[in-house]
Nucleic acid binder design. Structure first.
Ligand SMILES: [Zn+2]
Ligand SMILES: [Zn+2]
Ligand SMILES: [Zn+2]
Ligand SMILES: [Zn+2]
Lengths: 143, 143
DNA sequence: TATTAATTGAAAATTATTTTCATTTAACAT
DNA sequence: ATGTTAAATGAAAATAATTTTCAATTAATA
């Protein structure tokens, strides 16, 4: 019952409230990625009366302490760019100025094949992005 | 002035309104990824009176026609998962049921080095995800 | 120039997230 | 066990992002 996460939190000096325990249980018992609202919904019986705010706050806390993974799916990340390359390509993004450089040659086919064999998934696409700081931003000129 | 995007839209039978032209110009003139709000802000002079709604609608239209690239940054994609692997790893995600499988061995170091040399970027991290359909979902049982 | 379906913008509605603040409580020290 | 206290909670309001509705406008075509 006292999961690794709960233990880690205790070590950080955080209180182990029943709300947090319930949220941790939901996360620990799921193979699926969950939004704050998803978790809230799954707490209806186990912890009725819990506030959605608490779910948000707990997720933030766990995230800060490296206890969660974040997945990026669908279209909730809404930043766009004119498509400049015709074929298959990916992006290298500057966290300073937002500049985006296209690149090709991700060569993920063999990895994709391996994963497909190992997991039985039918893999349809992949998302790959490199993030860093461009030379202008490194030089201190904010552009 | 009649960019490839404008041309593509015309071919699809869409009207080329001044609002759309202006949005296309902003996108074409930027190396940076832009949110709807970013674009709206940059239209203040070129196309005052334009509605933010129109920006949203135009982005959707362009996106549907494969004329845009989407970038995923920061924490705007809010789905979480208990961290189950200690070291560097990535995720394989089922679009049917949301199940997530961890995997290691992305082997992106050499690509990262190449990109760094070619662009002068200091690359700090990468985001890699494979998306597809797990075997249960393929079998039709929704889990 | 007239016609018409597509497009627009204002406003309201919806959804996601954060802030504020008074109340409660887990952890610790008696 | 009981008291103390800083941390945590929940309700409600605030903010932010996105979508829907609908009447008015307009680009494209005839
Ligand atoms: Zn930069
Ligand atoms: Zn690729
Ligand atoms: Zn599945
Ligand atoms: Zn990696």
């Amino acid at each position: 019952m006292d999961s690794e996460i709960a233990l880690a939190l205790r070590n950080k000096g955080c209180k182990l409230t029943p709300q947090r325990k319930a949220i941790i249980e939901v996360l620990s018992g799921s193979e699926e990625h969950l939004t704050a609202a998803d978790i809230f919904a799954r707490l209806r019986d186990k912890q009725p009366g819990i506030g959605l705010v608490t779910v948000y706050r707990t997720l933030e806390l766990l995230q800060e302490n490296g206890l969660l993974c974040e997945v990026h799916i669908g279209n909730s990340c809404r930043s766009y760019l004119k498509r400049r390359s015709d074929g298959h390509h990916h992006h290298l993004i500057c966290r300073g100025c937002g500049r985006v450089v296209d690149f090709t040659g991700c060569e993920l086919d063999s990895l994709q094949k391996r994963l497909s064999q190992e997991t039985g998934f039918k893999i349809e696409k992949h998302l790959l992005e490199f993030m860093g700081c461009c030379s202008s931003c490194l030089d201190g000129r904010e552009d």
